[in-house]
């Protein structure tokens, strides 16, 4: 295991850790969005999907723990790298300037930490049921966990919906740079394909966060039926 820690501690090892965990988290986001889109198919579909996941029991917990580990690794490595980066320049420029680095690339630490805050809130909100217990405890007619009801009830609250939208905008910036960055870190560079990857990176970031925002807004604007 020593060699792994050794690798992780190196600059490139750290970067690759960010890239691989980032890629896994990105995959999760895709799956998460796909599941959430069931919201559009109505309460039955959504709640059945939720019940299906729950029914997997141990497997679900394995996946959850794995996901958590990946997430924690991503955050810890990111913080470590950011600290090293800060230390590498003890005195800042009196008059700094930027030639071409995008806003997204320059705000990765901010968007990353904001996303961490969001994830914590999101879990407290929908997974643990701390922030809005009244939504969390909603039940289906069969007495199961009413996920559809919980989600629509929450997003019909303007404050909650706007917070989710805002966090998704932040996440957009994180992904817009993150996806292309991970490709480069993994050694992908090609005269023809690299510009495509850059464009695609922004594209998928927009698709994912746009999809999430669309779901929130469709509840808020009453496009899908709200259960309360």
């Amino acid at each position: 295991m020593n060699w792994m820690l050794d690798y992780w501690r190196s600059s490139i090892g750290g970067k690759v850790t960010m890239a691989i965990t980032g890629l896994l988290l990105f995959g999760f986001l895709v799956g998460h969005l796909a599941g959430n889109l069931l919201l559009l198919s109505g309460p039955e579909a959504m709640n059945e999907y939720a019940a299906f996941l729950k029914s997997k029991g141990a497997l679900l917990w394995v996946v959850r723990c794995g996901l958590l580990a990946v997430f924690v690794l991503h955050v810890i490595t990111g913080i470590r790298l950011a600290r090293e980066n800060r230390n590498a320049r003890p005195i800042a420029y009196a008059r700094p300037d930027t030639i071409q680095a995008s806003l997204a690339s320059r705000s990765m630490v901010f968007t990353g930490l904001s996303t961490l805050v969001f994830v914590v809130y999101h879990l407290l909100h929908f997974t643990v049921g701390v922030t809005n217990p009244e939504h969390f405890t909603m039940e289906t007619s069969a007495g199961g966990h009413n996920v559809y009801g919980m989600v629509t009830a929450s997003f019909s609250v303007v404050g909650i919906a706007l917070a989710y939208v805002a966090f998704q905008v932040v996440l957009f910036f994180h992904l817009a740079h993150g996806v292309q960055s991970l490709a480069h870190t993994l050694g992908l560079h090609h005269e023809r394909f690299t510009p495509m990857i850059k464009t695609a990176s922004v594209g998928v970031a927009a698709l994912i966060t746009g999809g999430n925002i669309f779901l929130v807004l469709s509840v808020l604007l009453g496009i899908v039926e709200v259960q309360s």
Binding site: S10, N85, N87, Q100, S105, R106, M108, H184
Partner: peptide, 22 residues
């Protein structure tokens, strides 16, 4: 090379490509 570069206290690449532009 990488070991020495790290030891010297340089930061890490975040793929912003300011280096290439400069």
């Amino acid at each position: 090379l990488v070991e020495t570069m790290d030891k010297e206290g340089f930061g890490n690449c975040t793929n912003q490509y300011e280096c290439e532009a400069a």
